[in-house]
Design a binder for these strands. Structure first.
Length: 277
DNA sequence: ATGCGGACCTGTTAGC
DNA sequence: TGCTAACAGGTCCGCA
């Protein structure tokens, strides 16, 4: 589920309903996520007001009192606002119950669901930027710090395939497997090309492709926003026009050559032998 | 520092 | 139809 556009869509969907709301109760049904959910989470959250909601890479941050709730959706997680009569699912691990508010004066629950449990729900005291998980993350792909010059500088002497490089969160955050495949196709760069042997001119194309592909996906994710509360919450990014991901052995949309699928660092990698060099 | 493989989980699908 | 293996949108960690 969660690539960066999904996380951003989640944030945009929940943030307006959370800001200024008071947490009345916290229920942890399954603390065994990627890391244990802190045993004192309820004590930290209950009776506190939620402040600013933000995102760093694929990590979501909710300001609560003097600290922050830090969450990650892993491979299969989602975070939704549900009405208080919403039936409980098998993988609904954490509920954060909010006070009644708003025009409808309805009680809402922020529900963290994650079948594979690769996600995380953590508590951070003080400044989240200093937290171990966030401290050495690379720039935001849609931000001003993510430039061709930055990519070029960081890439020198590096031997890894370019696909692994752009998926490294210490280089740039938020480029997951789907969009790494898509951005490389749009750039005409072979996913296995050695990172240190790519010119600045090609990094200009790649940088732009990453920004474009993520930006377009976020726009599409926005179509599900209005139904986010109380709706089915199903993200709509699978509607996205994917040109290579999941299309191994199918024809290239540009040249009709058969797309090749290989594994790079254990991840499914699809590319066009003719268009990508 | 860099690169690599393993680890964490469950659900779905492909193959026999 | 039923069993088993492979694979899935992430990314941290330990080791060489």
């Amino acid at each position: 589920m969660p690539e960066l556009p999904e996380v951003e869509t989640t944030l945009r969907g929940i943030a307006p309903h959370l800001n200024g709301r008071r947490i009345v109760n916290t229920i942890v049904r399954q603390p065994a996520l990627r890391w244990p959910v802190p045993a004192d989470l309820a004590k930290r959250l209950n009776d506190q007001l939620i402040g600013a909601c933000s995102r760093r890479g694929k990590y979501l941050l909710l300001e609560v009192g003097a600290g922050h709730l830090l969450m990650h959706l892993g491979m299969s997680g989602n975070l939704r606002l549900v009405p208080d009569n919403e039936p409980l699912g098998k993988h609904d691990h954490v509920d954060i119950i909010l006070d009644k508010a708003g025009a409808a004066n309805k009680r809402l629950t922020l529900r963290f669901t994650d079948p594979r449990r690769f996600g995380a729900v953590l508590w951070v005291n003080g400044e989240p930027g200093e937290h171990k998980l966030l401290k050495s993350l690379g720039p935001e792909p849609l931000g001003e710090l993510f430039t061709p010059e930055y990519l070029y500088r960081r890439s020198r002497q590096r031997k890894v395939p370019i696909k692994s490089f752009v998926m490294d969160s210490h280089v740039v955050v938020g480029v997951g497997n789907i969009y790494a495949n898509e951005a490389l196709f749009r750039s005409g760069i072979h996913p296995l090309r050695e990172t240190g042997r790519i010119s600045l001119a090609r990094y200009q194309v790649l940088c732009e492709a990453i920004k474009t592909v993520l930006g377009e996906a976020i726009e599409q994710g926005g179509t599900t926003l209005r139904d986010f509360v109380g709706g089915d919450g199903k993200p709509g990014y699978f509607k996205q026009q994917l040109t290579v991901y999941g299309r191994g052995s199918e024809p290239c949309v540009r040249c009709a050559s058969t797309l090749r699928e290989v594994r790079v660092a254990q991840r499914s990698t699809v590319y066009c032998v003719r268009c990508q060099r």
